[in-house]
Design a protein around this nucleic acid. Structure first.
Length: 154
DNA sequence: GCCAACGTTGGC
DNA sequence: GCCAACGTTGGC
């Protein structure tokens, strides 16, 4: 039983639920998060926690499925790679600024739960995901919020 | 492509 | 510590 629930945003061109589904036992490194609040949430993630995958900036915006934390936070290697778009010169080996987790496929919803639909769920009233202008890419979910999503996905 | 909203940076 | 400028996110 997972201890905590999360949602992570991704542009499906970069990494979609189908990228997880096509190799369902192969974890994918979730790197490139460069926002301090989101990073702090990543560091709070535990092995076995469940994560909703949200497709943003695309044609079908919404929640596409569930993945599970397969490895908890560790230093994001891309911050040390000068050729990476995620390179951060201010980061050092002994004090890495950014963290990554590994995630593994769990469930693909039969259909995307659209943003419109999510906005209509009373349980998500207070969730930053449905607030205008929200840019947080890693969001903690309460069990109530989580259950409302699972119910809606049926 | 547009643009509002936001987080970060840097000058002071 | 303030805050303007800037770059980015993300829905439309």
């Amino acid at each position: 039983m997972p201890k905590q629930f999360w949602l992570m945003k991704t542009e499906p061109d970069e990494c979609s639920i189908d990228d997880f589904a096509k190799n369902p036992t192969q974890p994918i490194r979730w790197d490139g998060v460069r926002n301090f609040q989101a990073r702090n949430f990543i560091r709070d993630m535990d092995l076995g926690d469940h994560v909703l995958i949200y497709h943003s900036s695309c044609k079908h915006i919404g929640i596409a499925g569930i993945v599970t934390v397969a490895k908890s936070a560790y230093p994001d290697p891309s911050q040390f790679d000068p050729r990476s778009p995620y390179y951060d010169a201010k980061s050092s080996d002994d004090n890495p600024r950014w963290s990554a987790v590994d995630l593994v496929f769990t469930t693909k919803f039969p259909r995307i739960l659209s943003l419109d639909e999510l906005k209509q769920l009373p349980a998500l009233d207070k969730n930053p995901l449905v607030k205008k202008g929200n840019r947080l890419s890693v969001i903690p979910f309460t069990e109530t919020e989580w259950n409302a999503i699972l119910e809606e996905s049926k």
